[in-house]
Amino acid sequence: MADEETYSRREFLRKSGYAAGGLVGGGLIASLITKQVMEEDPKTNPSDPNLSNDHFNDAFMFFTNRDDFRVLASSCERIFPDDENGPGAIRLGVPFYIDHQLAGPWGNNTKEYMLGPFYKGKRTQGYQSRLNRGEIFRQGIQKIKVMSQMEFQKSFQELEADQQDNILSAFAQNKVNMSGTSSAEFFELMRAATIEGVYADPMYGGNRNMEGWKMKDFPGAQMAYIRQIQSDQFIEMKPQSLHNMLNK
């Protein structure tokens, strides 16, 4: 084994190709590749195991006040609530996931075509807002706040679940007036981001402890299924994150 681990990558891949030909070798290749990467770069492995348990990352990159963040968090929780199936959006870290996404390329639409002129398009023409996603969220959250004061004279996060659902449904059904976007567009973005936060790799801030994956029996970033793919049984595997992979 020790010998194999010192192969150069290229050599390794070449050999593995031959080796995998006749036999089950898939899982073997996978773990060897993982190991080999680590041999090359031991620094990515934190020496103090406690270090990986901190949550320095749980702070605002996009939001500026707690109240707005709570409105977002309560909304996500209604989209993906805590229940007997497992944790909901808040316990999974989804609000932090969304905060971080909004602060980055996704929230700033850096990979989107954002040149004008802007016109309201047909549904089939997709996203036509002049606003970026961060701006859409900021506005949407303000609208949720205003609406919950108007309808129930309380802040959104203090409402009963069904009252919150009422408000969110109004957004989903495009009944709330928004500028430069529509409430349905905002709601769909929030819904999509919530689901992403539940199931994206935990390095992004959601899917805490891979609990999102566990609910779905999804084993995460496995390297290979060549040994299991023909199984008649449903296979439950311990999930693996990209962090695990890098530090194995």
């Binding site: 031959y18 898939g26 290979a224 299924y225 060549i226």
Partner: peptide
Amino acid sequence: EPYMNQYDQQINACQYC
């Protein structure tokens, strides 16, 4: 399975990842 093409380039075996 691993394969060598007409240009002597090797393609490896899929691991069903």
